[in-house]
């Protein structure tokens, strides 16, 4: 490794190690190993947080907080499960706490829509499926409106919806992560889908009405 700085050499040394070895180094007092560990998992953690919160700053705060929780509780980690799964449980519980803290009411959905949001709702009504997919990629409004729809769900329903649809978690995994029974997860998933469909229908109808007027 001639020619590399000490920092680069350290990076190479850490990046070649599996999570479990890094955890052992952190527990041995090398906090630099946790920086490598956090860097590895940060994209997934932030992506998960952004599925719960449209506010980018909030999502990053919760991601950061998750790493702090993981760091302070690292001694309790057991290698039977992957570190990623253990960390995800921390993230999910933090997001759940935050959702419950700022519980919203369904009435908040029916509000003012901006002109770009109305445009997107009209696209969703009349464009072809391919156009819809392409248009959604270009529009921030599509992302914001999706969050507004999900905000109408109860925190429990939203948790199940995101974990099931986005993270492709099984019912038993969700139940274990949230500490619920599997029956409760199934019921929540059913109710969440129904509630979400109802709100989405209303939103589509609002777009149609604007189109006709």
């Amino acid at each position: 490794m001639l020619g590399l700085s000490a920092r680069s050499r350290e990076w190479w040394r850490l990046s070649a190690k599996p999570d479990e070895e890094l955890i052992a180094e952190v527990l041995g007092g090398d906090s630099g190993a946790f920086t490598e560990l956090a860097g590895r998992h940060r994209p997934r953690v932030e992506r998960l947080c952004r599925r719960f919160f449209s506010d980018e700053e909030m999502a990053r705060d919760i991601a950061q907080e998750s790493f702090i929780r993981a760091y302070t509780a690292l001694a309790t980690y057991r290698a039977e499960m992957p570190f990623g799964g253990w960390l995800r449980a921390i993230v999910v519980n933090l997001c759940y706490d935050e959702l419950r803290r700022r519980r919203r009411r369904p009435e908040e959905l029916v509000g003012d829509f901006s002109a770009p949001e109305v445009q997107w709702m009209q696209t969703a009504n009349v464009a072809s499926p391919e156009e819809i997919v392409g248009d959604a990629e270009e529009r921030r409004e599509a992302y914001d409106l999706a969050h507004r729809l999900l905000d109408t769900l109860k925190p429990e329903d939203r948790m199940v919806m995101v974990l099931k649809e986005s993270e492709d978690m099984s019912v038993s995994d969700i139940a274990e992560t949230l500490g619920w029974s599997e029956a409760k997860v199934k019921i929540r998933a059913f109710r969440a889908r129904q509630a979400l469909r109802k709100q989405a229908e209303r939103m589509l109808a609002a777009g149609r009405n604007r189109l006709q007027s």
């Binding site: 599925r51 999706a146 999900l150």
Partner: peptide, 19 residues
């Protein structure tokens, strides 16, 4: 599909790109 499309940007989107 149109109903699905309204929530898909969050539930099925690539969040890195959205962010």
């Amino acid at each position: 599909f149109r109903v699905f499309a309204l929530t898909a940007p969050v539930l099925h989107g690539e969040m890195e790109r959205d962010a």
